[in-house]
């Protein structure tokens, strides 16, 4: 695994600062898509945080979208989010669903 790029580092920093996560994983999945090697376009973030308690899935995702507004308006064009409370995280033992295979859509723009 190569070192995280600048976009991955920014995502990690912003989420860590704002959400005080019990668990945080930022995965660059760009290599699974038809983009240049070393790209930082497709990400998955897995976060366990008390900040999500009592919030609907849509509200949790919106919270993450807002924190990563600059990245989403810029280089990042796919963002998969797993946003759980630490309780759910422990119940599921940190096992999160894999991302689906790319079917070529990013080639089309």
């Amino acid at each position: 695994m190569s070192e995280p790029g600048p976009v991955a580092q920014a995502i990690t920093r912003k989420l860590a600062e704002a959400l005080n996560p019990a668990a945080l994983e930022v995965i660059n999945e760009s290599h699974m898509h038809s983009v240049a090697p070393g790209s930082e376009t497709h990400f998955k973030v897995v976060i366990a945080s008390e900040a999500f308690a009592g919030k609907s899935p849509v509200a949790r995702h919106r919270q993450v979208h807002a924190l990563l507004k600059d990245e989403l308006a810029g280089p990042v064009h796919a963002l998969s989010i797993v946003a759980w409370t630490p309780d759910i995280w422990r119940q599921r033992r940190g096992a999160f669903p894999p991302s689906p295979k790319c079917l070529g859509g990013s080639k089309a723009g």
């Binding site: 998969s80 689906p100 859509g105 990013s106």
Partner: peptide
């Protein structure tokens, strides 16, 4: 013919 894995799911 979904052209994206997320759409396909």
């Amino acid at each position: 013919f979904p052209q994206c894995g997320f759409s396909s799911v």
